[in-house]
Amino acid sequence: MKRRLQVMLGFSLWLILVGTGTARAGERLIIEAALDRQIVDPVLDAFAAENPQIDLDYRDRSTLEVDQRARDRDSPPDVVISSAMPWQLALSNEGMAQPLDAPEVDQWPAWAKWRNEVFGFTFEPVVMAYRLELASHMPPPETHRDLLDLLTHYRYWLDGRVVSYSPRESGVGYTLSQQDARYTPRAWDLIAAMGAANINLETTTQRMLAGLSEGRYWLGYNLLGSYAMLWAQTHPDIIVQVPNDYSLVLMRMAFVHRDAPHPAAARRFVRFLLSRRGQHILAGQTPLFSVRDDVIGPYTAQRLRDQVGDHLYPIPINATLLAFVDPLRRDAFLRRWDREIQILSE
């Protein structure tokens, strides 16, 4: 019964899509995004309400998949959104993005854009998350050093219960590891300690959170704060901790594809993301945190800074990121990562 309803719904939806598609040819908008649809839905809905003639085709994928789709010469998307910042910048450097000329672009802070082509439009802290029961066995971690201490002294409890991003299979995971190692060489000690604790590697924050809720994992490291905070609202047994020593901040980056089949709609969408209204929805109805200073809401970069202090370190949007996607450097990094993760378990 339920399945039949779904089929019928799907069929009627298909009819609507086809109907509007034929009635308004060229008004489609293909967005390839590494951003969970359910999180960004309020923004998409607001955009659809403002632009009823545009038929949104939002495709939620992993970061590396998004990168592949953006390089697809035969059917390029209109807008590319991804949290894998080095890959997004590399696409821009390869000439895959087109510059945007709009007042929103001029007002956008210089540290959150590159060549007026790629824009970081969210401000997502990278956090630790743990189960409430962890606190009954050990002092909950507040800093990276705490985490290393826990892994060293409570390995018995944490063995096989720690989860983090896979640097090899996730662009975000790779970026975060690179950035950690860039800030301090002690990051390698942490990786070695996590390796000793038989760390589990996942490809998305959602799966890490699901594992935490199911009790498979006790402690998650380098989760996207946006997803974790939203999750914690409905799962009181999960505690989200923004590290007190330093916290990386990831920005989702969006650009209009050079070969966008629907460039006008694409530009309108990116402008909407950067606009006061778009950012206001971001700050109020999603946990993605608005970048703009002039937006007020529960989720804004400014408010986060006020709460956490000044140890937020956004991953810089500049040409240094391009070094991370250099295959030699990536291979060397992953080789070292593999070496370090096993160094204590042998």
Binding site: R182, T320, F324
Partner: peptide, 8 residues
């Protein structure tokens, strides 16, 4: 190992 600063 491509130095990030060079690209910057």
């Amino acid at each position: 190992e491509m130095p990030a600063s060079a690209l910057q």
